[in-house]
């Protein structure tokens, strides 16, 4: 039993963190091999395990980097690799193509109901909150009878994009008799979605660690009533509770990373996403409160962390959604 990373994983994490301190562009990440680390050797990468995903995304979260790694690589390349599209998967993992994965439909909340239909190789339907849709060269689209690959410039495809709270962009995707190629059935999505949820949770863990550091430093330096506010027991205890919760989140992320390719994966997905989402919201709220007024400002670094944490809870189903899933899986 050991809860440590391999030397390669640690080295990648260290060099990622160093690079991200000066250059947060996707190209810089890809140059370091962060994309390839998320694919298995069989799929043209050199990693792809739960621990690899944990290491890469925790680092991205700490550095508050906005990257295509989640949508284009973990999800996009992940689905492509399972579909036997190894070349495309590899291209996505080095940033040569951009993949967006279009699953959710308007009004379906988190339940994954699919209404998009395929007739004679043409897709018709509507997808919502498609992360990275506006820059995608390829789209992976779920339809009632399976998973389809759509060219980003295909006929009958329109994307209306908007900004997201965590700094990324998403779009509403409309498909009207859009040419598409079926690459497999809906079960293709299970492992990549679970891996993406691990990625979101590991990213949130990194962001929570960053939030805790920032807040602890602030408690030590901000003075009121003639002394550092961190000397007040009321604040000390709140901060102690917060890092205890973050320790729980860390273990939850380890649990999912360690069971990503096990039989009981789904139960761990639900448990981890539920707990991490709940703790992420709490860390967001508490760190603003512990800062006071400065924590409300856009200029201060905490602002982007807070929005990243709230986004982490919402994406792929919030803590209540996954609590219900956990209950359903436990009853089964």
């Amino acid at each position: 039993m050991q809860f440590t990373f391999t030397e390669e994983q640690t080295m990648l994490g260290d060099s990622l963190l160093r690079t991200l301190a000066r250059d947060k562009t996707p190209a810089a990440l890809m140059d370091l091999g962060a994309g390839a680390a998320l694919l298995s050797e069989a799929d043209g990468g050199f990693g792809g395990t739960g621990a690899d995903i944990l290491m890469v995304f925790r680092t991205l979260g700490r550095a508050l980097a906005v990257s295509p790694l989640l949508d284009s690589v973990v999800l996009g390349a992940g689905v492509l690799a399972l579909a036997g599209e190894g070349d495309l998967a590899e291209q996505a993992s080095v940033g040569a193509i951009q993949v967006a994965v279009a699953l959710d439909e308007p009004g379906q909340r988190y339940d994954g109901t699919v209404g998009t239909v395929a007739r004679g190789g043409l897709l018709t339907g509507e997808k919502t909150m498609v992360s990275g849709a506006d820059t995608a060269t390829h789209l992976i689209v779920s339809a009632t009878d399976g998973v389809y690959l759509v060219d980003g410039a295909a006929q009958g495809l329109t994307v209306t994009s908007y900004r997201l709270m965590d700094g990324g962009r998403a779009g509403e995707v409309r498909l009207a008799d859009t040419p598409a190629r079926r690459i497999g059935d809906l079960t293709l999505l299970a492992r990549p979605t679970a891996a993406a949820i691990l990625a979101v949770c590991a990213d949130a863990l990194g962001a929570m660690e960053a939030a805790a550091e920032l807040t602890t430093d602030y408690l030590k330096t901000r003075k009121q009533f003639g002394r550092p506010i961190g000397s007040f027991q009321a604040l000390q205890h709140r901060m102690a509770d917060l890092v205890t919760e973050i320790e729980q989140a860390r273990s939850a992320v380890w649990n999912l990373a360690g069971h990503l390719d096990d039989e009981d994966r789904d139960r761990h997905v639900a448990a981890t996403k539920s707990l991490v989402g709940k703790i992420a919201r709490r860390v967001a709220e508490e760190t603003v409160q512990l800062h006071g007024g400065i924590g409300m400002t856009e200029e201060y670094e905490l602002a982007s962390i807070v929005r990243r944490l709230l986004a982490a809870d919402t994406r792929f189903g919030d803590s209540d959604h996954h609590l219900e899933r956990f209950m359903a899986l436990s009853a089964a």
Partner: peptide, 30 residues
């Protein structure tokens, strides 16, 4: 009672917390 949604949710929440804490414990043991 275990099928009561409110009570089942309370059990599930504590079970999820325990799953995480058991791993913290193992991490420290390791």
């Amino acid at each position: 009672l275990i099928e009561n949604p409110v009570f089942a949710a309370r059990i599930a929440e504590v079970e999820i917390e325990l799953m995480a804490m058991a791993t913290t414990n193992l991490r420290l043991l390791a």
